[in-house]
Amino acid sequence: MLGIIGATAAASTLDLLAWSPPGWGANLLRGLLNSILIATGAFWLGAAIGICGAYGKLYGGPVLRDLLAVYTTVVRAVPELVLILILYYAGTDAVNQMLVALGYERIQLSGLAAGIGVLGIVQGAYATEVLRGAILAVPAGQIEAARAMGMPPVLLARRITLPAMLSFALPGLANLWLVATKDTALLAVVGFAELTQETRQAAGATKAYFTFFMAAGVLYLAISLGSGLVFGRLEAWARRGQPGVGGASK
């Protein structure tokens, strides 16, 4: 029912999606590019925080462990929207106070940097838990064997732990990547020109709400389905040489 109404409403306004100025296609794609940039940046920042956090939680001292527990608990209990606002204001404030203290001018933090930073911190909390579980799933004997051979810790992480945990971590990381792409939409609330915000502007200007929101939905869906395929491949690659689950080797 909804689809039929949407389709009939959309058919008449489809040329609004054209690339050049009467159409808003270029704006939408620019928004899409911004969304992907932020999601990618936030995902990698989150993964970096996650690796440090997971190692901290597993091998750190009691104080570090408790602090990390507070970090992951608080970030996972407070809505992303609230965190984005808090970190956005507090982050800009902190950067400016630091700059002023060092004798520089105040700056306006760019939306891109702030978005990546904020979403990265949110992603980091979830990634910490994902990677901690994945590291725990690596057979202890492998790590012990490497240690017994006198491998230094960093080399051990790079050669043994991280590659071995990858196949356990990838499903969780794939999920996090999808969350990252969808969370970029929240930056629309702070006014950053990512896909949802651009869509809303285009829709508001032309009153063709269905057309634009549906088009943006298709773009988001394409990202999800596309990354699903990529992560499926990656997982198969990371699992190469491992026995298949339940006997069936894929």
């Binding site: 609330v189 709400y209 939905g217």
Partner: peptide, 19 residues
């Protein structure tokens, strides 16, 4: 699961609301 909730919300509110 493949699209942001904010987009769904705005589609329903602005889209249906204008229809």
């Amino acid at each position: 699961r493949g699209t942001p909730l904010l987009l769904q919300l705005w589609l329903l509110y602005f889209g249906l609301g204008s229809l």
